[in-house]
Design a protein around this nucleic acid. Structure first.
Length: 387
DNA sequence: TACACGTGGGT
DNA sequence: TACCCAAGTGT
């Protein structure tokens, strides 16, 4: 049974307790027994309880890179099917390079944060041009690739080449926050957290150590109801020994998400084709296709909104008809209600005023194009209607 | 530093 | 239902 201890009575060498809020982090003595023991305990735990994940079965930097990008802000369970499909379609860095962006976005469809796919594609070209298609091993070179920040760089270099580069992903952040009982939200202490991650890293076993740290966060030191009794670090965990593990990490105050009401048009022409447009390559859902529409203005009806937006965005006249479906969808920073109506094309040739490209497509062809999730619901509704 | 950037699952 | 959270990066 673990004894409760006060912060001052702790033997930890990573003491940033809530009692010492303003005090600078004391870095551990690199050779100290505390750090050495923690490494040993964690690596033993990992050998026993670590996860068996697909990307851990190889040392190919390309495959590990793909996994690291997919795993950004995304759970392992979600990534695994995408990861296998991706490697079937783009088995090598070279094959990714020669693919076009639409194919890449289609393979990414549904994963979200589509700039990851765009950057993966761009970075692949850069690796071919600047490094002859060989994934670079220098930290500075890896960091210079689009879509790769400090955590992903550390993840790749440690996993693929066993280089001693630290990481600080969400799992590690939570583990370290509890280990030192960090008294501020992690975003306010990034520098300290990086220092701790670097100080703890086992330079003899960086690959296993980093993977172990992430597994600990994902399976033991979980956001809710952490399983502290099975944690290899419980003896030196400040939060556990203070009994406050479930209250950490501290939350940032969050304001309510704004909500937008959108009018969306499924525009039919006389041939029974549907109009879709490709969004500009940057920003929200960049490069994906969608059904055109826009935000409702004060005092406007949905029908008026759709007619106006289509006139402004495509420079055509339409007749707004029956409602097809209403969709509520939550993004990370706002939520929307999509009011989708069938519409009839009356006159004018659609112009890409606020988008990159316009197409008239059939319900059969539409699957070739990458769409955001909310729009896939519209396509499903169209299919049901067609039956 | 703070915010934009998707989606699915958990409570 | 509504909110939180997840292998972060770019600006």
């Amino acid at each position: 049974m673990q004894q409760q201890r006060t912060p001052t009575g702790s033997s930890s060498d990573l003491s940033v307790s809530i009692m010492e809020e303003k005090e600078q982090l004391k870095l551990p003595n690199p050779g100290s027994c505390g750090v050495h023991l923690k490494r040993q305990l964690l690596l033993s735990w990992y050998a026993q309880s670590g996860r068996d994940l697909p990307w851990r079965r190889c040392r190919d930097p390309y495959q590990i890179w793909v996994s690291e990008i997919m795993l950004q802000q995304t759970q392992v369970k979600t990534v695994i099917p995408y990861y296998h499909r991706w490697l079937e379609q783009f088995p090598s860095l070279e094959s990714l390079t020669v693919a076009n962006l639409q194919q890449v976005l289609k393979a990414w469809e549904g994963l979200g944060y589509y700039s990851r796919a765009r950057n993966l594609h761009r970075a692949a070209q850069k690796i071919v041009q600047e490094y002859g298609g060989v994934f670079p091993r220098q930290l500075q070179e890896v960091l210079a690739l689009p879509g790769i920040g400090p955590t992903t760089a550390g993840g790749i270099l440690s996993a693929a080449f066993n280089q001693p580069v630290a990481i600080l992903d969400g799992n590690v952040k939570r583990v370290l926050t509890r280990l030192v009982a960090l008294s501020v939200p992690p975003a306010k202490a990034m520098k300290q957290l990086w220092q701790i991650s670097e100080a703890l890293l086992d330079k003899e076993h960086p690959r296993d150590f980093n993977q172990a740290l992430m597994d600990l966060g994902a399976t033991v030191c979980t956001p809710k109801n952490p399983n502290c009794t099975s944690c290899p670090w419980k003896d030196s965990c400040q939060a556990y020994n203070l009994g406050i593990q479930s209250q950490l990490p501290m939350r940032e105050l969050s304001s309510p998400l704004p909500h937008k009401t959108i009018g969306v048009a499924v525009i039919w022409n006389e041939q029974g084709h549907i109009l879709i447009d490709r969004r500009r390559p940057e920003g929200l859902l960049g490069g994906l296709w969608e059904f055109p529409g826009g935000k409702i203005e004060p005092g406007e009806t949905i029908e008026e909104c759709i007619k106006r937006e289509i006139q402004e965005e495509l420079n055509i006249e339409i007749e707004v008809g029956d409602r097809l479906i209403t969709i509520n969808h939550a993004y990370s920073h706002f939520s929307i209600t999509l009011n989708v109506h069938h519409c009839r094309h009356l006159s004018g040739i659609p112009q890409p005023v606020e988008c990159d490209e316009i197409r008239w497509v059939t319900l059969e062809e539409i699957d070739q194009f990458p769409f955001p999730k909310a729009n896939i619901q519209i396509i499903a509704a169209l299919r049901q209607n067609a039956e």
